[in-house]
Design a protein around this nucleic acid. Sequence first.
RNA 1: GGGCGCAUAGCUCAGUUGGGAGAGCGCUUGCCUUACAAGCAAGAUGUCGGCGGUUCGAGCCCGUCUGCGCCCACCA
Length: 891
Amino acid sequence: MSTGTNQTNELSKSFDPNEFEDRIYDMWQGGGYFSPRGEGDPYVVVIPPPNVTGVLHLGHGLNISLQDLAVRYYRMMGRPTLWVPGTDHAGIATQQVVERKLIDEGTNRHDLGRDAFVERTWEVKREHHRIITKQLKKIGGSCDWSRERFTLDEGLSKAVREVFVSLYDEGLIYRGLYLVNWSVGAQTALSDDEVEFKEVNGRLTHIAYPLEEGDGSIEVATTRPETMLGDTAVAVHPEDERYKSLVGKNVVLPLTGRAIPIIADAYVDREFGTGAVKITPAHDPNDYDMGRRHELESINILNKDGTLNENVPEKYQGLPVKEARKAVVADLKDDGSFVRDEEHVHQVGHCYRTGVPVEPLLSEQWFVKMRPLADEAMKVWEEGEIVFYPKRWENTYTAWLRGIRDWCISRQLWWGHRIPVWYNDETGEVKCLLEDPPAEDLVENGGQWRQDPDVLDTWFSSWLWPFSVLGWPEKSEDLSSFYPTTALVTAYDIIFFWVARMIMAGTHFTGKAPFRDIYMTSLVRDKQGRKMSKSLGNGVDPLDIVDEFGADALKFTLAFLAAQGQDVLVEKESFGLGSRFGNKIWNAARYLLMNLNDRELVEVTNDDLQPVDQWIYHRLNQTVEGIHSAMEVYRFNDAAQLAYEFFWNDFCDWYIEASKLSLYSGDAAEQNRAITLLVSLLEESLRVLHPFMSFITEEIYRKLPPIPGRDRAEALIVAEYPRASDDRRHESVAEAFGSLQDLIRSVRTLRSEFTIPPAQKVRFSVRCEEGFAHLRFFEEHSELTELLASAEGTTYGRDEVDRAGSVTLVGNGYQVYVYVRDAIDLQKEVAKLRKDLEKTERLLVQTEKKLQNQGFLSNAGEEVIEKERAKQAEFSGKVEKVRAYLAELEA
RNA sequence: GGGCGCAUAGCUCAGUUGGGAGAGCGCUUGCCUUACAAGCAAGAUGUCGGCGGUUCGAGCCCGUCUGCGCCCACCA
């Protein structure tokens, strides 16, 4: 059976990803290939949802690329594979985007009103959503768009509501007046995790508080002098002799004239500063605790916009914190209570979204009691239900769980899930409801019930993501088929925000950890190791990379560079790696397709394989095995490198080159055999490469002719991934081919060192030694050496040959005589040989020492010793021959 | 204060159970050789951060020191 292949399936001469990437993506999506197919153990990934109003950066590029790589690999491995895409409503960030727009339009959200503002935000969301999904497609993400979700869509809102009500009913959600982190920038409370501590060069101000009675004073120190306006005590250590007598007395607070007590508390560090601390329960976490212990009054001095309120003397009212600080210090100086101030480096909390310093503020907020949830999350880890890659992140995870604190979930925003709690202000009743109360009961319609104005922390919907996207709380088909999911691929900077909380929610509400494998991606940095950011201007836009190099280059380069657990440093130019690889694949394929003309693809059986064919199949086998084991443990860079090396170094550099003689000089049958093997190997290589280089391989796959005896998938994306097979294992052939490569390289080196022009053919003979497996190989397949070394008039054999006029190259098990003595500088050759001899002698001595070492012989493994013996034989043989040859040359 | 990570070729980094030091880029030399100059062939460059230890044998294991980086933490 044979198939005519005279159709023109040519590839264009120049390689341009832009020419086919969009077209191929549409083909995939149109073909429904992104949806799970088949039966069996599914491979499921949910995307870490990008902020809907955000801009994709290279971190997303890496994250999307690695997920796509894994998903495509498992899809081709035949597992029903699902990658659920979606976006996050990102409360603070999105609200800010819209608020800024309003300010530009000369208005603001309060003028607009809540409903109109939310509607406006939905418009902005829709606009950005279109852009961001387009970007995800550009990058090549093979996600199932028919299942796309948004954290604020109907189903997910239902999940959020369900979870809130159920936690409320369990007593795990509570409301109360607590000191929280207040972001003046975003005008909302934040959870502890949303506060970023940064080192700040501040000043430590020492202030003397005069005693109410007598002349003495007590000196305190603070980094936030303005908070003294809200002081309600001064604390000292109970055993501090300096102050013991003062405990119980009062001091008069400067600037306000209020009298406040001196109390004793063991929390105070006698060594720090003066050993006396001013206490501001309303604006400092420690002071707050102490205030509770001592039943101190709390005086809130801040408005929510960060200005001082009516609880401070009039002259400070309305001043922002920063200004108030200056004014207070100035006034303290005037009034004589200022002692001194000094430079002081300390950690100051900042809002992770707006970057402004966080002000601790006493306010009414909703919290989730985390301890019980954290315990469950700890348990699933202990039981091995979840595994981190790399493993060390488990420490970070467990440390956080151990030190868990309650989670402040209410946000004073308008964009988000409204808290499902209603108050009856007359009766004081509170109800938390799954369904909204009837409209007529609401105060705005003349009823009595008023809904809590706040929305929930964005992460309160994100933590449900792996099961809410699959339909929970409904008992959907997707939920039963695809939950728990298989892998989570995300960056390590959101372990607390997201990963740990998803595990809590998943475990608590579904009884199962939401995923098994947690792959923490590296952070992408610039070449100086700096985080990419807009302000530094060092950001690289993944779409620019796609435009310039193609999506395959983006994915391949990142996969190749991103070793597990190591931050990856890149610049735009780095992506030349993937781009060049694409070019290589393109040209190899173009070359083979060109050579289909006037030849036929024929049936080729294992019996038809020559050693070089067996060698390439052996290498393919090894490559596939290596990729499988690398993928199993998420070593993407190893897998990418194996694929790269096989295709470029083995297939292109050796196999295609070696095939040229058959392809051009063989008879018709041989030519057909050769092209068939080449195209078959190309086809299989495309399957190997597809997860790494998806677009280009699919594009080429479409142009391949039918190959006799091989099934054709409707698209490469759903073709079967190659597996290793025993009948392709050819160890001894591989060893022989290794020797052949050595031989060829040594001839090439000789040519290169003596600059013998490529056009000038050299004549050489090979003499193989008795007892070497590769002897027959050389004898039977002389054309390989002939072609690869650009030689002519070659003779082979076991017998001595005429060496007159030759230069000898000594290899393991063979010698090559190259007849170029006239063309080379003998002195240089002698010098080179001496150097080579020295090195070999050194190696020989090393090996012999080992073999004489009793400790080595008794402790090392059998294999290691065997290997050492083989080395000894090789080295000593070589030394002997080179010595003899040198003596001959020098004579 | 606690925890973690990194120091390997000029640059960016691989190196999975300890057994003759690797890749990509860059550099040098020669080639537009019937796919690819985004290429081919050949080549140079390493006290594997310092010191000590375990071992027949250490880039890899242990200790210690130095220099960077990150995370967590309520010392005003």
